[in-house]
Design a protein around this nucleic acid. Structure first.
Lengths: 114, 114
DNA sequence: TCAGTTGCGCAACCATACGTTGCATTGTCA
DNA sequence: TGACAATGCAACGTATGGTTGCGCAACTGA
């Protein structure tokens, strides 16, 4: 069900700062480490490291523009990640529902027997 | 959009080992640190630490049974977590769709103008 | 009953990840 | 060219996920 490959994706979006970076990039279209760090409670260097991580798993891409390095989300990859999240959420939900209905069936059987 | 409270939940389920623990507990109904460590490539102590984390955010609960300590998932809390995941996934997805349709509209406008 | 196993908890330790500060490097522009 | 602004690199501190080793409590059975 869960593969080792996906662990990279999970750990990438598991960090709250990285999720906020993705949100920011999504909202503003693009950003550099400097501009992004201005909107987050962390330093530019921390942002840089996170962007490297996000880049490594393919969630963002960068383009040099003069002396700055602009990042933007890779929409295809983020869509994949979003699907992953929804999928795991749905899986858990369905399992929980099955467990619940099972428990209710047992209750039913008990009270009938009595 | 994202609150600090939820960060705990995310970091709890962000770890691959903890996700697998949840999967196992969900599949088998219950388990102790010892039995669970038998099904994972980590030691009992590592499992114990993870269970403590999961307990702290309320995703699992424990019940002492003689000398063993049995854990089981808190279904309500896991349902909340599952909803969170699906929700974030859906949010990203809708934003991506909006961006895409926006881009297409611009393309449309360009070619019309020409 | 008491000796041996079994399950837990605690402490020390190592590696990696996230964050900081400080400094060097490079590109822009007046 | 000189000054500023953005990036990159390195050292460091702390937290976390993992290990091993040990001690203790609680079952088990001869």
């Amino acid at each position: 069900m869960s593969t080792a490959v996906d662990d990279d994706l999970w750990s990438a979006i598991g960090d709250p700062t990285r999720r906020r970076l993705l949100d920011l990039l999504l909202a503003e279209g693009q950003g550099t480490a400097t501009t992004l760090s201005g909107r987050l409670p962390v330093t530019r260097q921390a942002v840089t490291k996170h962007l490297v991580v996000l880049d490594r798993v393919g969630l963002v891409q960068s383009a040099a523009a003069g002396r700055e390095k602009r990042y933007h989300v890779d929409e295809t990859q983020l869509a994949r990640a979003a699907a992953q999240l929804s999928s795991v959420g749905a899986t858990w939900d369905s399992r929980l529902r099955r467990i619940k209905s099972l428990a209710e069936a047992i209750q039913q059987a008990k009270s009938t027997k009595k």
